[in-house]
Simulated assay, not measured.
Amino acid sequence: MVEAARDVVAFTGAGISTESGVPDFRSPGSPWLANMPIDFRQFVCDPAARAEAWRRKFAMDDVYRGVAPSRGHRALARLTAAGKISAIITQNIDNLHQASGVPDAALIELHGNGSYARCLDCGRRHELNEVRRSFESVGVAPRCDCGGLIKSATISFGQPMPEREMRRAQEATLGCDLFLAIGSSLQVYPAAGFPQLAKRNGARLVIVNRDPTPLDPLADLIVRGDIGDALALWSA
């Protein structure tokens, strides 16, 4: 199916990174359950919430420090390099697609990237090691030189979705004839709307996931096996 397609778009969720050691959000015992992201409005309005957000952020960074791309990441990178995949739309914030060699031009991060921070006012990039040193030395959420709040470059609950990335994702989805939904529960919107958009536009839909999803009835093919095994076969 991948070989016969003209234009393939991959859509990835947390499941592609669990083989790398990055915990997903829903599994029993997941460290995310004790370190859930702080709502964006709370982060902006409450200094104590900002400090707690950074404490949780660094706690989770410690959980998956040193993780490497999975077989699934590497397979998608090979398919992208070969010209089969035109875009990878990801819900993940772990930077593992970049680490696998996927170029920025082919990657669309709907929920941002957790490997650095940005000022909410001026947009300046801040490296996390600097932010962490500042936070741990004084116990107060840091601010940018411009006075703005510094926040992990991820999209929090309640924070507007990035317009440019949403537009890129829509354009890629409408241009494909095969849409691969990989390792996603397909329950989080608006991201989960892209597989449906692809299907409505005439593309074939393949869902590769450990568990059933609400969009399974729309799929042309469902793969319940290991993500790394499935993608390795398609990228061989």
Rank of each mutant, 00 (worst) to 15 (best):
213 T>N: 07
20 S>W: 09
225 G>E: 14
196 Q>A: 14
132 R>F: 01
25 F>R: 07
62 D>V: 04
46 D>P: 01
161 M>F: 15
199 K>V: 09
135 F>I: 08
20 S>H: 08
48 A>D: 10
24 D>V: 11
16 I>S: 01
209 N>T: 11
195 P>C: 10
96 L>M: 07
24 D>K: 12
121 D>H: 12
132 R>S: 00
55 R>W: 03
146 C>M: 12
114 G>D: 00
223 V>I: 15
85 I>N: 04
95 N>K: 09
176 C>D: 07
182 I>S: 03
107 L>N: 05
192 A>D: 05
208 V>L: 15
222 I>V: 15
133 R>I: 00
97 H>K: 10
180 L>T: 03
170 Q>L: 14
206 V>M: 12
221 L>Q: 13
87 A>F: 06
213 T>Y: 10
65 R>M: 01
236 A>T: 07
188 V>H: 07
3 E>K: 15
192 A>L: 07
71 R>K: 10
74 R>V: 12
85 I>Q: 02
202 G>I: 10
39 D>E: 13
153 A>S: 14
202 G>R: 12
58 F>D: 00
197 L>N: 03
6 R>Q: 12
139 G>E: 07
97 H>M: 05
112 G>K: 09
43 F>H: 06
90 T>L: 03
111 H>M: 04
115 S>H: 11
204 R>V: 06
203 A>V: 09
97 H>A: 03
166 M>Q: 11
82 A>Y: 01
198 A>K: 07
110 L>Q: 04
149 L>M: 14
111 H>R: 11
220 D>E: 06
36 M>H: 04
